[in-house]
Amino acid sequence: MNLQPIIATPTTIITGFLGAGKTTLLNTLITHKLSDDKWVLLINEFGKIGIDGSLITQDDDITIKEVSGGCICCTGQLPLQIALVRLLGDHKPSRLIIEPTGLAHPDELLGQLGAAHWQASLKLQAVLCVVAGTQWQQDKYRTHDGYIAHVRHADVVLCNRTDGIDVAALSAWIRAINPHAKIILDGADDDLQALLDLPHHSTLPARTVALGAPNQPANNTPADAPISLPYRYHERIGEHHVGGWRLPAEWQFDSYDLQKWLLSRPNYLRIKGIIHTTEGWLMLNIAPDGISISDTDERADSRLEMIFADQISDDTWQVWDGELMGMKS
């Protein structure tokens, strides 16, 4: 019998707060991927709808797995273990990239992936953290423990959206938190592919930090599992409230009214969706400091999800559902 040696898969974690630009970085890395590389992407979504995988550039040598329904760092290790075992066993990738939700605690994830039973299977590479200058300039982000944690546990901090930002002050803030991190400013001429091969140098002990109830189970229903449409949900996960819709593809929504309505939601942290509108299919990626709306291909259904820092009552969700359905043509 010819036994193949066990080779630990190079594994990169891409962190950053909600709306920082993790998916944009991931798409950029994909454009630099070597043609013979076989990548597996593990995308963790806070909500249940499953949208982020559809925002990523498709490639024949890339397999995407979405784990939805909470933070894989905080809802227990079983969902993460199951997903990793299946991905590594079924696809035998040359590289694994993990994008946790922007509400994740990277120290907890690093603690899980650094466990002894993963040493033969995973080779942790440099942790890449994305920081948006437009977020950083707001006190509510700079003083947020979760926001700071992404920077503290990174090997490389990539800063984007820095026009009009005091980059010297931003760099000083990063160095004060993590003096060992490599800082890449927006527009810097760096070999992004080479970043994936940088080693991980942890100088801080991983610690367990629970975002919500420590034993709260994750919803691991696949994003494309058969469900009855229209599908609606909302729930509180830890300190945040999340809700969304999956709707029949033939339903169309007034494009102008929809965008105006979404932007008027109070205190949202993130709004994302792929929706059939009167102007065609649109891809929406909205954060308080940035809006991206672009055309996209026809999909099997429309999807919309919103995350809030504040509690949203059942009655409010009911009103919102009626308002959204009122834009349907």
Rank of each mutant, 00 (worst) to 15 (best):
residue 118 W to F: 11
residue 120 A to K: 14
residue 101 T to P: 04
residue 91 H to G: 00
residue 124 L to K: 03
residue 105 H to S: 03
residue 91 H to T: 06
residue 100 P to F: 03
residue 92 K to S: 11
residue 100 P to Q: 04
residue 83 A to S: 15
residue 97 I to V: 09
residue 88 L to Q: 09
residue 116 A to Y: 02
residue 113 L to Q: 02
residue 92 K to D: 10
residue 106 P to T: 00
residue 131 V to L: 15
residue 133 G to V: 08
residue 134 T to Q: 13
residue 126 A to C: 14
residue 104 A to N: 04
residue 131 V to A: 13
residue 123 K to L: 13
residue 114 G to K: 07
residue 104 A to M: 05
residue 92 K to V: 13
residue 107 D to I: 07
residue 96 L to P: 05
residue 103 L to F: 08
residue 117 H to R: 12
residue 105 H to D: 09
residue 108 E to I: 13
residue 96 L to F: 12
residue 102 G to L: 09
residue 99 E to M: 03
residue 83 A to T: 07
residue 127 V to D: 04
residue 92 K to L: 13
residue 87 L to C: 10
residue 105 H to Q: 10
residue 103 L to V: 03
residue 132 A to R: 04
residue 111 G to E: 10
residue 109 L to T: 00
residue 127 V to W: 08
residue 109 L to D: 02
residue 93 P to E: 08
residue 90 D to L: 13
residue 114 G to H: 06
residue 123 K to R: 13
residue 102 G to Y: 00
residue 124 L to W: 03
residue 125 Q to N: 14
residue 100 P to A: 05
residue 102 G to V: 01
residue 126 A to N: 07
residue 89 G to T: 06
residue 127 V to R: 04
residue 124 L to G: 00
residue 126 A to V: 05
residue 85 V to C: 15
residue 128 L to R: 00
residue 96 L to E: 02
residue 111 G to M: 12
residue 97 I to C: 05
residue 103 L to S: 04
residue 102 G to M: 11
residue 128 L to A: 03
residue 87 L to D: 06
residue 112 Q to V: 15
residue 97 I to P: 03
residue 111 G to I: 10
residue 104 A to T: 00
residue 108 E to R: 13
residue 121 S to L: 11
residue 132 A to M: 05
residue 95 R to W: 08
residue 121 S to Q: 13
residue 117 H to A: 11
residue 133 G to K: 03
residue 101 T to H: 08
residue 110 L to V: 04
residue 131 V to K: 07
residue 109 L to E: 01
residue 125 Q to C: 13
residue 132 A to K: 01
residue 83 A to N: 08
residue 103 L to T: 02
residue 116 A to C: 05
residue 118 W to Y: 11
residue 117 H to E: 14
residue 98 I to H: 01
residue 107 D to K: 08
residue 125 Q to A: 14
